[in-house]
Design a protein around this nucleic acid. Structure first.
Lengths: 208, 208
DNA sequence: ATGACTTTGTGAAAATAATGAAAAAAAAAT
DNA sequence: ATTTTTTTTTCATTATTTTCACAAAGTCAT
């Protein structure tokens, strides 16, 4: 059970989680891999194998308990905890994320937003006053922040990441359109919105 | 050469493209797979194999011409064309995307934004007046729109997609946190921001 | 309790993807 | 002109991921 989980499986977990949330909201108690297979468009065997990576959550002849399985996946993903989050960059994306209330519901508590631009510092974004990046050091000493979201222009993305890591941040969610590199022990997810748009463009072209 | 390209390769193309853009902006003329390998953190053999899928763009003893390779990848991804784009849903994400000028630079011309909420219809978003979804049918008959971006709440995402497809839209970029399904021949990319956040949460936990 | 049915968990096989290694081709140096 | 160096292309190998198929373990109706 403590074998290394493959990245392919990890990437599918959020999808299982979303699906289980939906089942739960419909009031379903149990679900079989074959039903999941039909509704999610994945192979049933793959689903069973994926879920089995973390322990035998299912029961023969019955299937999986929706609530139990959802709880297990939440735990694996670390969604059963609350996180304090800050945003770097109060541009459009930063502002949009600041106002995205769903994150808070999911345990990601966006507490403050930082920017370098003197014209923006002090202004209100989603009910919080934008702070200056020069205050970041002191701020992080006084606040227990788990995750930083980088929403700066790409020129500043790596610099922001370096700064954050030097101040002890251990998880970075990067929206700038460039890959941010960090030392081992720090988690990064590079979002790359435009990559997804480019793939759409490719598919569109292929369909013709 | 006309063998089917694997999805794994397609997903890497945008990254190559971004990297080549950077090289070009630095004024470099040529690049070898081994140099790319070092800077991108991929295996050199994989890079050569990926690029070779689409034809022999490289030259032995020299490497790849940056501008030629960039042009080729742009063509493969369909980035050498311009696309007219509309946005469905004038909430935070829709508004943020509407104002994201980079898309326009990259050939994705966001021309109009639609919403269902009477209080929002007619208001200004990024210099455009928000249109009502009830006008969509007529609108699409009079405008050549290639791509629709879904930024509605998840409850309306599938409905929006169905509507768009019924009016002839052939490519959908979905930001709602649910998978949107469409008939064969229509391209969809489901973005799923929160999936990426969940994976970050997982990595964060694993690093401890 | 019994038996028919359902569904998981998993070993084995198949399919994909990544890596390694070397022949072939061109460039650069002598 | 020839040799050395660089680098792609291609083929072979290895690793990873997905799918198949079935025994084992349970459910459910009677």
């Amino acid at each position: 059970m403590s074998e290394k989980i493959s990245p392919a499986v990890i990437r599918r977990l959020p999808r299982y989680y979303r699906y289980l949330e939906e089942l739960e909201s419909k009031g379903l108690d149990k679900i079989s891999s074959s039903q999941m297979s039909i509704e999610m468009g994945l192979n049933a065997s793959q689903i069973r194998r994926d879920l089995n990576c973390f322990g035998g959550f299912g029961q023969q002849g019955y299937g999986y308990s929706v609530s139990k399985l959802k709880k297990e996946i939440a735990h694996i993903l670390g969604l059963d905890k609350r996180y304090n989050v800050i945003i770097m960059g109060a541009g459009r994306i930063g502002q949009a994320l600041m106002g995205y209330k769903n994150f808070m519901l999911e345990g990601f508590n966006v507490v403050d937003i930082f920017d370098n631009n003197k014209n923006i510092i002090g202004s209100d974004v989603g009910g919080r006053s934008v702070l200056g990046i020069s205050d970041l050091d002191k701020y992080l000493k006084n606040h227990a922040i788990d995750i930083a979201i980088i929403c700066t222009p790409k020129e500043y993305a790596q610099k922001s990441a370096d700064l954050l890591v030097s101040f002890g941040i251990k998880a970075i969610w990067n929206f700038a359109p460039t890959d941010v590199a960090v030392r081992k022990g720090v988690a990064v997810e590079n979002v790359h919105l435009s990559d997804s748009l480019y793939v759409l463009s490719y598919k569109f072209k292929e369909n013709k």
